[in-house]
Simulated assay, not measured.
Amino acid sequence: MADFIAWVLVLAIAAYACAGGTDYGAGFWDLLAGGAERGKRSRWLIDHAMAPVWEVNNVWLIFILVIMWTGFPTLFQTVFSAMWLPLALAAVGLVLRGAGFALRKPTRRLAQQRIYGAVFAISSLLTPFFFGAVLGGIASGRVKPGTTASTDAWANGTSVLVGLLAIAATAFLGAVFLCSDALRFGADDLVDYFRVRVLIAFAVVVVLALIALPVTHNDARYVWDGLTGGLGLLLVILAAVCGLATVLLVWRRSYGWSRHTSVASVALVVGAWGCAQRPYLLPESLTVAEAAGAAHTLRWLVIVTAVAIVLVGPALVLLYRLDTMGELEELSDADTRAARAPGDNL
């Protein structure tokens, strides 16, 4: 049961990395869109593309937290004790990001739009970085039962690189999805705009991954060994193939399948990380069996998880499907042309 719950945890992290990561990526491109006039059309697209599902994606994060503190209380206590600062900063980023996104759209004053937009965009950059820094600290073995909070746990070479990779991966996902959204909404000029950004983001991911190779070899040897052999290596190779396939599809302007391959590339990397750490939740210090909660708690957790998959899973799949098909919210001609509303320049 503990192994099953551990894999559910990995799958939930992969789901959040893909679903939430796409939204973070959109926020990243919002930050780099330019001034009010230059970035107006791309920001309109980002607002309308994200609006139907941006709150739903945080369901995965809540699910991860519930699995951790219920199924693996020792893991939850250890991680949140040693990493409370980056996790708190990520949580603040989540709140500010949501507030900025929700308040920017109905606001008509340009000055207020800039403030809310900056909060949304900057938080979209910082939140995935801190989540990645936490994962890097875990992978490098710096977090162990009894570890006290320190900057070394999350402000080290591995953590910084994983944090930067998290930003680059979300930017890659966001750009891929926005290409398809621009085509769906009839904003043809934005298709090429985000197409270029897909290629740039993928190039940055590749460069950061190459830089991470020697760092991971020296600083996270257990995970390195897992990623360079067995099932972990196979998943890494498949992730690379899916990433290259995404670039090829975008280059050939086939934006439908590119969404699936981009999501697969990120999900497979998370799966490879989970395989690389087996049988540990915290490399070389806390195994799945050691971290598991009481047997009766795990039994109920398995039951609740199964029920959630049956009842909630199809609803989420349908929601994402309707969103990608454009059935939840449509842009008017005024929206796609980024028409000014009264009071925009006040």
Rank of each mutant, 00 (worst) to 15 (best):
F72L: 06
F130L: 07
A169I: 02
G174N: 07
A267V: 08
W60E: 04
L316F: 13
A341Y: 06
S150K: 05
G20N: 07
A338M: 07
I167K: 07
S265T: 03
L161Y: 01
L235D: 04
L331V: 04
L210W: 11
L75I: 06
L248H: 10
L233T: 12
T74G: 04
A15V: 11
L173K: 03
A292S: 09
A291F: 11
S254R: 14
I309C: 09
T216L: 12
Q112P: 00
D189V: 05
A291S: 13
A15G: 06
V247G: 11
F172T: 11
G326S: 11
A292T: 05
D23G: 01
I237A: 09
Y193E: 08
L318C: 04
F28H: 12
L231N: 08
T78D: 14
L103M: 13
G293Y: 09
A49D: 03
L282M: 02
S140E: 01
G100R: 00
M325Q: 08
I237F: 08
D47V: 07
L208Y: 07
E330T: 14
V143P: 00
F129N: 00
F28C: 11
T324L: 08
R197M: 12
D188S: 11
V119Y: 07
V205R: 11
L231S: 09
L311F: 08
A315S: 09
F4Q: 11
V307G: 03
L311V: 14
V191I: 14
C179K: 00
L110N: 01
G230Q: 11
T147C: 03
G71P: 13
L173H: 06
A212V: 02
R337F: 06
V134Y: 01
A308Y: 13
H48A: 02
F80P: 03
L199G: 08
T107S: 14
H296T: 15
A102E: 14
S123R: 02
R278H: 14
Y280H: 13
A334L: 10
L85P: 08
M1Q: 07
W60K: 10
A118T: 02
T297V: 15
G20W: 06
G20T: 05
L190C: 02
A334W: 12
G39L: 05
Y222H: 14
A209K: 05
L31H: 09
V8T: 12
A153Y: 03
T261D: 10
A102D: 10
P283S: 09
T22K: 03
R321N: 15
W84R: 13
V66T: 15
A239R: 02
R253L: 12
V66E: 14
E284L: 15
Y280D: 09
L331S: 03
